Amino acid sequence: MSKVKYYYDSENLAYRKIKTRKRRKLGVIILFLLASALFGFLSFIVLLNTPYFETPKDRLQAREIENLRLNYALLNKKMDQVNDVIEAIEDRDNNLYRVYFNKAAIPDSIRKAGLPGKNRYKVLEGYDNSQLVMNTTKRIDVLSKELAVQSKSLDVILKLADAKSDFLSAIPAIQPVRNENLKQMASGFGYRTDPFTKARKMHEGMDFTAKTGSPIYATGDGVVAKADNTASGFGNHIVIRHGFGYETLYAHLSKYKARAGQRVKRGDVIGYVGSTGRSEGPHLHYEVHKDKKVVNPLNFYYGNISAVEYVVIAQLANQENQSLD
């Protein structure tokens, strides 16, 4: 029940009851309600814009943003690991592979150059986490560029390695007759006494004495260019073209095991020791040609003999004795 209010009437010297008008009372109530509503609305707006009041949607978005930041952090950590691996590969590429194949190193200005275009990342600007997204995107682009450059570099190295492998396989690097089948090294490369004229003349190969029928081996990969007896003095003979300027000749064979046009590998049996043509006895006359010039076969025996065996063969080959053809 509301309190009754009085006022003092000085003229009549008495207290009189205050009578409030209903309209005024209603206006006060309405004004109070409007003020309360306005205050409540303003308070609600303020709360919405403070971190102390979150709607379920705000909380969901906050979690998503936090997950996004976490995923970007993990992505950057993985990119650090990828970058370490790429740098190790680049180091081997520049300082091992390219040095071995005599190729210039690829500078960092090419390897680590970003992709062209100043406004490439403009579409990522203007967001709360724009810097994080832009930096990560740039890193991905740089790594992608590095991988592309390294991939092309390895393609070049692979081609060089294939060519190098073919070259190493083509070199006539083994003896054409195995040591267990040899009787002796009859004559080496250089001036020797001709067995028929007794004159001193250039002997352009090495003579390996062995029993008739002993196997003769291709000393390097190549293609058989000749397998006949048309060359004067050589009797049955084989010529192999190895490529890279190398050719080898095998003379005085008893029979063939290879034919013209056949591709052979180092170590394949191509014929057998004999004494056909201008020959003093069963042996193999062996020659090596480089760029159409005859060279000493002794310089190429690194594929199947030891250092001690090489010294022995070199001593025997360098004796100025009589050749067998």
Rank of each mutant, 00 (worst) to 15 (best):
N229T: 04
I238Y: 06
V223E: 08
F244W: 15
P215A: 11
G233K: 01
K226L: 05
G235H: 01
G213A: 04
G220L: 09
T209K: 04
I216G: 05
V239R: 12
S232Q: 14
G222L: 05
A199Y: 01
S214P: 13
F244N: 10
P215Q: 12
G222W: 11
F189H: 13
D221F: 13
G245W: 02
A210H: 13
T193C: 06
S214K: 05
T193A: 02
S214W: 04
G222T: 05
V223Y: 06
G205A: 06
D194F: 06
T230C: 00
V239N: 09
G188T: 07
F189R: 10
M185F: 07
N236S: 09
A231Y: 14
D194E: 05
A218M: 15
I238E: 03
A227K: 04
M202R: 12
S214I: 01
V223F: 03
M202Q: 12
A210Y: 13
A227R: 02
G222V: 03
I238S: 07
A199W: 00
R200T: 08
G235L: 02
F234K: 09
S187L: 12
S187C: 15
G213E: 00
K198Q: 07
Q184M: 14
K183E: 11
G220C: 08
T212I: 11
H242F: 08
A218K: 14
N229M: 09
G243Y: 10
V223P: 05
G205K: 11
K226P: 03
V239W: 10
V223Q: 11
R200P: 00
G233C: 03
S232F: 15
A225Q: 15
M185K: 02
F189D: 14
G213S: 13
E204L: 05
R192Q: 07
R192K: 10
G188M: 06
T212M: 13
F196D: 02
